[in-house]
Nucleic acid binder design. Structure first.
Lengths: 157, 157
DNA sequence: ATAATATTGTTGTAAATGCAACATATTTTT
DNA sequence: AAAAATATGTTGCATTTACAACAATATTAT
């Protein structure tokens, strides 16, 4: 078993690994939730739709940067959302360049609202044993952590 | 843009999404680090090796539960680690059942030590702007968060 | 005792993901 | 003006991943 001294020497005791593990569980939970609630979107589609809803007129590459997926996959996610009628895409220009911008549709807004309501209470039940202050503090620290990461990680999107 | 009221209504403002995003960045960083430092293991292999090193004689399924991967992939990761000579596997029994147990080799220990040292300072530079207390608090809260998740998420390993 | 169930590991497969290459168009450099 | 570099989106491919099916064995139920 582990002794206290070598505790911090192990990767598996680092905050990095703890993050990875927690997020892995989190993704599993939302996956199961989406299946159980018979939501016709993947979690990635849901996150993308939510992001589009608060960033009307965003272009694909900028969206990719927000959702941290590469351009290829972002395009595929948007294909699916468009095909389901939740977003519309249109050609426009950004800095004199042709880009594909997008916006959420009425149908998409309704769907998003429905999912948000369905999912919210379930997800909140997970954090109900943790105080609001703790939640917020973690969210704060994670955000600064993320900002730090963004400085270091090379992102080619 | 967002107003303060609907802030908490969006999935992308939830701690769940924040976790997902931070972890995604984190994984990208470690990937880039492993490539840059020319480490001949994947991050998953590294995490598995580290886990084996503190759980000598563990069987595959139990390891799978610890690293949160399914049995199939756990087996494949171990194949690779064994082929590289970092672990040894041997048949044993657990509750009267034949299982494949494993342990880390001398070579594996040396490799793990090397990687730990190489990686540690790089990863610490990411959290250097965040106070130790914050880091620990986040790690604490993440752990209780994870325990809560483990109660809810159905894991079939 | 026999059948049903459970545990453990492996194999196969379909989906997701990331990365590189490409196509197109625009900007910058020479 | 021509060439090189950049921005944007798409296509193809190789890797990763999860899930289901299988094989072998042991336990439990009937």
């Amino acid at each position: 078993m582990k002794t206290k001294q070598d505790c911090k020497l192990h990767y598996t005791d680092s905050i990095h690994y703890e993050l990875e593990q927690t997020s892995r569980l989190m993704k599993k939970l939302t996956n199961q939730l989406f299946e159980k609630l018979e939501i016709g979107l993947t979690i990635d589609e849901y996150a993308a739709l939510d992001t589009v809803s608060v960033n009307a007129g965003i272009c694909q590459r900028d969206l990719a940067k927000l959702i941290l997926k590469d351009r290829a996959n972002t395009g595929r996610i948007l294909d699916s959302l468009e095909q389901k009628g939740f977003i519309t895409r249109f050609i426009d220009t950004k800095n004199n360049r042709l880009v594909k911008k997008m916006g959420i549709t009425e149908k998409g807004l309704r769907e998003l609202d429905t999912i948000n309501k369905k999912v919210k209470q379930y997800l909140e039940s997970v954090t109900k044993t943790i105080s609001d202050e703790d939640i917020e503090r973690v969210q704060e620290t994670l955000k600064s952590f993320r900002l730090e990461l963004e400085k270091v990680v090379q992102i080619n999107i």
